[in-house]
């Protein structure tokens, strides 16, 4: 076969892509909540982690992988909805640090409770596909059946979210309540319910990320498995501009590729440092994000 496909550059790009889609998903879930409720959800990694633990608790009852995935998503939807109703609802319109602080607190509690129930020892999740890389002409190729599954799932989720927002009545209402809550209410849109729905949806997107991440990375599922992914997801969302879902996804994927190159050509430690540097520089150049059109500020 073509040696090009197993070359260093292609390998880096493809492995970067595999990580990048997970950053993109986290960034997307952050943007969904930020746009609809003006809250930067610092528990956006921890909530899906918790739901994933809950869902995969069914494994011990001999339910298969897919049944557990469904259970995880349902747990995520519930957790997201309950969080919005009981934790976040009272914080809209408060100073912007209040929801930040509450969600950081929630992050800590969720991680601690998860570690208390399930311990901090990594737990390996079953995988429906082999994680062994394909070989091309005796050389390892960057992709495995699992990474293809990972990338495909991420793309499908992104496409579904886009379709939901673009083409459905629900999406129209979700967008309207994010853009103009009061006007939407005057038109009979039940904004309160839609905000809950937005959180449910966003947590579900996060859950799918958490399932992919904890099966793919050698670490397995741990209470802190999403911490790093969350940091990269936030960096991607901030570079893309918290307002733009497309920007968040693109920035996430690019960040994944850049990270892979840094890992390969510099070293593992430098990855987050360089990512942080990119964030600082991009925020200085375009404070409202690289992919947003206007820099209007809501007064």
């Amino acid at each position: 076969m073509d040696p090009f496909l197993t070359s260093r550059i292609v390998t880096d790009v493809l492995s970067g892509l595999t990580n990048g889609v997970t950053y993109g998903l986290v960034a997307l879930s952050l943007v969904l909540i930020w746009r609809s409720t003006g809250v930067l959800n610092f528990a956006q990694g921890a909530m899906p982690m918790f739901a994933t633990y809950l869902g995969f608790a069914f494994l011990s009852y001999h339910f298969g992988y897919w049944a557990c995935v469904v259970a995880c998503v349902i747990a995520g939807l519930l957790l997201g909805g309950l969080t919005e109703r009981f934790l976040v609802r009272g914080l809209y319109g408060k100073p912007e640090i209040n929801p930040i602080v509450v969600m950081v607190g929630f992050l800590i509690v969720l991680e601690a409770v998860a570690a208390a129930i399930w311990s901090s020892t990594p737990r390996s999740l079953p995988s429906p596909f082999s994680a062994i890389h394909w070989q091309l002409a005796g050389k390892p190729f960057a992709l495995s059946p699992f990474t293809v599954y990972e990338i495909a799932t991420a793309l499908v989720v992104m496409a579904l979210v886009a379709a939901l927002f673009r083409f459905t009545k629900l999406g129209l209402q979700l967008r309207a309540s994010a853009l103009a809550p009061e006007v939407s209410r005057l038109l009979g849109v039940r904004v309160g319910r839609l905000l809950t729905l937005g959180w449910m949806l966003s947590t579900a997107v996060g859950v799918i990320t958490a399932i992919l991440v904890s099966a793919n990375f050698f670490s397995g599922l741990t209470p802190t498995v999403m911490d790093g992914i969350f940091a990269y997801g936030f960096i991607a969302a901030a570079i893309g501009g918290l307002e733009s879902p497309v920007g968040a996804i693109v920035a996430g994927v690019l960040l994944g590729v850049v990270n892979q190159f840094v890992t390969d050509f510099v070293n593992q430690n430098a990855v987050i440092i360089i990512a942080l540097g990119i964030l600082v520089v991009s925020l200085m150049v375009r404070p409202s994000g690289v992919f947003t059109k206007s820099s209007q500020r809501r007064v």
Partner: peptide
Amino acid sequence: GPYLAGMTLA
């Protein structure tokens, strides 16, 4: 606020 919070978290 939220940007600074996220950046300092990173």
